[in-house]
Nucleic acid binder design. Structure first.
Lengths: 166, 166
DNA sequence: CTCGTTGCAAATCTTTTGCATGTTT
DNA sequence: AAACATGCAAAAGATTTGCAACGAG
């Protein structure tokens, strides 16, 4: 708004500004105050490209504003998810994961590689439609849906032994 | 095995016996001992028709064998799920739900009515196939999959107001 | 100024674990 | 008898909350 696009833009990603405005607008609309801590947490979350935990977010947010406390992280995360800027992902671990929705679609499935513990977000085109058809069977209307797949690397050449142990 | 089917069978459901044998066989196969507590927990779980929590299972199991402790509930639940007799369902609540798989299929989706908090298990025929197609996109092979839909009763006649508040 | 926010530490709440004792094989 | 399973109570670990001080509008 104040800095016209310069040929030598250093780093500020295009949508970062947009997203921050969206966040501030969301706060305003809900009578929530724009605090340094909330902005720091937003920035920390939005600058993550991968999944992160509340604890990791705390570390990153503190790098921006050292005064951020764990409590505020937990109090701000719901705001972030309600504003749709961050998605909460629960894959059945002890703790939840979060992921900045960099303007991406909602229709994604999580594939959890149980060996590497890595979580992949995969486009699942018909997921919403499919969820609707399932929900309608009990007279309900979907609010959100998620498909989670626990998976392992494809082992070529051996498929005996159904349970490798524990 | 010892009592031939009598015309006046009191209550013992057909598959109950079968399932209990399956459980005992599973224990044997894994060098686990057949204890009264484990059997009581199995019975308590298997006699539930709906979803239950660890705490509820404890209550029911104690009705069968008062000596069952919470610790044993938590130590037995993994055995029950590994034996495929019970399914673990995590819908993002604080605690997990469990459901006796009365010989039913695996391909089911959970539809959670956020207003009544009720969980519906719905057949989702293509779920496994769909999960596979998604997992293959990252070179993985599915172990299990779950589709969860958060939903609400269909409101006919009004669809304004996108966020009813909190 | 007023009321929402924050940090801190204590509290929650579910699930896990160490250890001495009781059971199964 | 030997090894495993159990109960109890303490521990763990993520998330929540009470409260006094702080800061945005």
């Amino acid at each position: 708004m104040s800095v016209p696009a310069q040929p030598s833009d250093p780093d500020p990603p295009a949508d970062f500004e947009t997203a921050r405005e969206t966040f501030k607008a969301f706060l305003a609309k809900n009578d929530l105050r724009v605090t340094n801590q909330r902005l720091a947490i937003f920035e920390a979350a939005f600058s993550q490209e991968e999944h992160f935990t509340a604890e990791e977010l705390l570390v990153h947010a503190r790098a921006i504003d050292a005064s951020v406390s764990r409590a505020t992280i937990y109090r701000t995360l719901p705001i972030l998810t309600e504003s749709q800027l961050v998605r909460e992902i629960d894959v059945g671990r002890d703790y939840k994961f979060y992921l900045a929705s960099h303007g991406k679609r909602i229709d994604q499935a999580q594939v959890v590689d149980v060996e590497s513990n890595k979580i992949y977000e995969i486009d699942a085109p018909f997921l919403e439609w499919y969820a609707r058809s399932v929900a309608e069977k009990v007279g309900l209307e979907p609010i959100s849906q998620r498909l989670q797949v626990q998976a392992r690397p494809i082992r070529k050449g051996r498929e005996k032994g159904q349970n490798p142990g524990n």
